[in-house]
């Protein structure tokens, strides 16, 4: 294809997206579109899978049977969400095994929030309330992404996600209303997860060079800072309602902008965790790799069994 032909294809492609048409797997697409989507969608899938670990950490220790089944079902949903998203990514011509390989070798990233440890039961509440709350704000706009399989996967994810945040908030609310010990546990979890949750929206707009392109392709509908502001404005009253304090002395209602002003995020910490030096980066990856490697013989056995069955069938008909 000549350069001029490609250019005209690209223009037609961008025009289709601007007209709100969806792009489907077999449609022609610019290589950059394909690569960006593989990167973002798989990163999203990886986050779901790695995200199972900090919460899975408390399944065996959940304090009641009701909480145990809710947590199990939630972590299971995350496996499901990872699966939907990997499947959607696979439509772009990359296999799940390749994507796992990228995760396991550190080539692909996942959400840094899961590199923080879950040290008390209240962290299950903080994750559901804050982390899933932030995730929903990030994800709902993606139901309108331009790439059809991604948008469809996100519709399914968002539908299931709504129970996650509710169970988290209910959990932390129960603690906040409980004994002084429980309330302290809830406040401590909020203290530890508040800032990392704010970091989930990514770097400041000034430091986020891909925003414009992502907006065009509907991988993003609002900027990082806009989404972060939305999260703060939504969450502060929820904390007040249950008597917990947001750990930000600079937090103040700003009548003029109709939103909260907030303190400075520690971006050094953000980049440190992104670069692999968070408290749990190594542990999370080791756990994922171990699960994958320990499962190799199982996956091999299932394939071998199928091949044997097919061979037998062929021998019978021959």
């Amino acid at each position: 294809m000549s350069e001029a032909q490609i250019k005209s294809l690209e223009e037609e492609f961008e025009a289709r997206i601007a007209r709100n048409e969806k792009i489907e797997p077999k449609d022609w697409m610019p290589e950059k579109y394909r690569k960006t989507h593989i990167r973002q969608m798989s990163q999203h899938a990886h986050s779901e899978i790695v995200g199972m670990l900090p919460e899975g950490n408390w399944i065996t220790r959940a304090p009641s049977l009701r909480r145990k089944v809710a947590l199990l079902a939630k972590v299971q949903d995350e496996a499901g969400h990872g699966l939907y998203l990997y499947s959607a990514t696979e439509t772009l011509g990359v296999s799940r095994d390749e994507l796992f390989e990228q995760l396991h070798t550190g080539k692909a990233k996942y959400s840094s929030i899961f590199n923080y440890p879950t040290v008390t039961w209240a962290d299950m509440g903080a994750i559901g309330w804050l982390v899933d709350g932030a995730a929903i704000i990030n994800q709902v706009p993606l139901c309108g992404a331009s790439y059809g399989p991604y948008a469809r996967a996100m519709v399914r994810v968002c539908k299931e996600e709504s129970f996650h945040q509710r169970q988290g908030y209910e959990l932390i609310l129960t603690l906040a209303k409980g004994t002084p010990e429980q309330k302290e546990m809830a406040q401590d979890a909020l203290n530890r997860f508040w800032w990392p949750a704010l970091m989930m929206f990514g770097p400041r707009d000034d430091d986020s060079p891909n925003t414009e392109q992502s907006m065009k392709w509907k991988l993003k509908r609002k900027t990082n800072d806009e989404l972060r502001q939305q999260f703060i404005d939504q969450t502060v009253p929820q904390a007040e309602l249950i008597g917990l304090t947001i750990p930000d002395p600079d937090l103040k209602w700003n009548e003029d902008k109709g939103g909260y002003d907030s303190g400075k995020i520690n971006w050094d910490e953000f980049w440190q965790v992104v670069k692999g030096h968070g408290p749990c980066n190594k542990k999370r990856m080791n756990t994922r790799v171990a699960a994958w490697e320990n499962g190799q013989w199982v996956r091999d056995a299932a394939i071998a069994h199928r091949e044997k069955q097919e061979q037998r069938k062929m021998n019978k008909t021959a």
Partner: peptide, 10 residues
């Protein structure tokens, strides 16, 4: 429940 997140495939 111990296995959740550690299975041989999703």
């Amino acid at each position: 429940g111990e296995l959740c997140g550690h299975g041989p495939s999703l």
